[in-house]
């Protein structure tokens, strides 16, 4: 019964991100770099937290290796993002999308926390597939095209390549658990 990031939740989240697309040309609606950075950073923090939870709860070797890589990669990307923002003298701006992401993540963490053993592993892996799919879709359709600064755009593009890898990796882990 656990749909986690998939299904309605992910669709609602995705909608909250892509809602900016139709208004992309409208001056007031377009995401600025400070907001884009905050959304990407928030997504990273969410996945680091999920990875740490998995390291605490899972005993499955493959799940643990994946979770450790999520913690390492997303921490590395976020460190790069923070360094870039500092260099550009940009302060990340909280916004409706990053708020929706954080709220959704808190609910998913609560759900995952209640699970144990193989049920946790399966739910975590499935969640990771859906989460990366959602974030990658948002990066591709909205965040990267909207980014003004070339360095931020380049970092988001590198992030997208890494996260596409994570999605494939999560799909492998998820398939192996079935």
């Amino acid at each position: 019964m656990l749909k986690l990031w998939s299904g309605a939740c992910a669709a609602a989240l995705l909608a909250s991100i892509v809602v900016f697309v139709p208004n992309a040309n409208a001056q007031n609606a377009k995401l600025n770099d400070a907001q884009i950075a905050h959304i990407a950073y928030t997504a990273g923090v969410i996945d680091v937290k999920a990875g740490k939870l998995a390291l605490k709860k899972s005993k499955n070797k493959e799940v643990r290796a994946f979770a450790q890589n999520m913690v390492d990669d997303h921490t590395a990307v976020n460190d790069k993002a923070l360094a870039l923002l500092k260099k550009l003298k940009v302060t990340p701006q909280d916004n409706d999308t990053s708020k929706a992401l954080a709220k959704q993540a808190a609910a998913e963490t609560a759900t995952l926390s209640k699970l144990k053993g193989a049920a946790f592993d399966r739910a975590y892996a499935k969640n990771e597939v859906a989460f990366h799919k959602t974030v990658n879709g948002a990066l591709q359709s909205t965040l990267i095209p909207s980014a003004s600064n070339a360095e931020l755009k380049a970092l988001l593009e590198t992030g997208l390549k890494l996260f596409e890898g994570h999605q494939q990796h999560a799909e492998h882990v998820s398939a192996d658990l079935k």
């Binding site: 290796a65 890589n69 390549k161 890494l162 596409e164 890898g165 994570h166 494939q168 990796h169």
Partner: peptide
Amino acid sequence: FCRYHPQM
């Protein structure tokens, strides 16, 4: 391939 990023 790269286990972490299997498209590599």
